[in-house]
Design a protein around this nucleic acid. Structure first.
Lengths: 129, 129, 129, 129
DNA sequence: GTGGTCTAGACCACA
DNA sequence: GTGGTCTAGACCACA
């Protein structure tokens, strides 16, 4: 079963939190290609959010090629494919890095501390697969 | 003179960019305790941004204890004090890292590519000081 | 001024109709890079639709790289760039062609008629630039 | 025996695919006036689709005058009549073409590429008859 | 004033 | 039952 949680009070919009969780689950193999996701209304009830919020998250994941929607049947994990151009992926990566670095710049960590923390997290994620 | 730049087209809200710069200037001694900051309208004109944006940045910095507003006189660098506890700094760092990794997880970069890109950016930032 | 119309009763969802018009206007140069679009609420009022419907259309166009949103300032025509991979563009093209051909298959036009009609429309579109 | 196939993963709703096939079979003489169609449940089983889907396709075809339902006996090919007027056929064709061109306008294919792809697909379809 | 998110609730299309 | 679209209306973030 696909179990996730979201924090409604957080800075990050709920629909993005849902997208994060689905992407992670797909990346870590907890959701395999072809697996069905909980229905929009089921997940909405489970998370205690409006069904539109879940629908929005699913719709964006469909647009990003992570999920596939079959009208009347449900939403499924899509076959992995390269949706974005190399330039676009670089652009998105750089944007995310920009945001990350500018958010932590005033926290006064050293470059080494930042790189260590990142390395540890990457190892953990890779191990989790 | 207090010289900063902001990028209106960037991913980070302008008021946060202003806050970042003021924090950095204070941390690096370019602004000493008691130094006056440009008036809201002056800075707004210099940066070509809406004055509400500067006002918001100043207000937040006052709230954070970085600046001090002296009614009728202007805004000044406050007596230095540690604003964030170690735990708070760690929490903010981890949150930012979570978001960063969530956003890039489906862009299909390897751990090595991520770490390389990060390292390069950190070197550039440090050199820029 | 950016003048468009939509048919609320039509088969095609309103937000897609809005996207169609914006894409066409951009492709034909009626909207140049950097041009501002009408505000979400302005366009909603003009089209007599809910503001969320316009917001949805704009958001998708932002995701497709056609528009750019500057928080608090408005929405603008983005610099043209290649967002999707060659494979993805082919996929989308083929999907659209599938839908088109299966919609007209029962109308009993000959291949020549179909190709002629298409050719004429393409000439018209190119001339219109 | 009435043998057709549908692709559940495809872009076109299954009930429309069924309608397309029945229309084609009637047009090409594979189904003659008065011929019986498989029962809703039979066809549903054969196609591995929900029986509501087949029922919807049959109902629409009856509504369009392509099929005739004889209560308690089954569904039969109706006496041929021209369902769509020339104007209606033209209107439907143009609408479909509008949608197709709108969807591909920002995919950056040239007119030649579009016409080539179309020509190839039409050849393939015609050969498949 | 501008866009972004969310809820509540309706209605439609499809299987 | 499943997803998709739309409205009405609220509230927040940003400039």
């Amino acid at each position: 079963m696909f179990e996730i949680k979201v924090s409604p009070g957080g800075n990050r919009p709920i629909y993005l939190q849902i997208m994060d969780r689905v992407r992670q689950a797909a990346a870590r193999g907890k959701l395999a290609v072809g697996d069905p996701l909980p229905s929009v209304r089921q997940l909405a009830e489970q998370l205690v959010v409006n069904h539109n919020t879940v629908a929005k998250a699913y719709a964006e994941l469909v647009r990003d090629g992570v999920l596939e929607s079959q009208h009347g049947r449900g939403v499924f994990v899509a076959k992995r494919r390269q949706v974005f151009s190399a330039a676009e992926r670089k652009r998105r990566f750089d944007d995310a890095l920009d945001v990350f670095l500018s958010e932590i710049v005033s926290l006064d960590f050293t470059s080494d501390q930042i790189q260590d923390a990142m390395a540890k997290r990457l190892v953990k994620m890779t191990a989790a697969r």
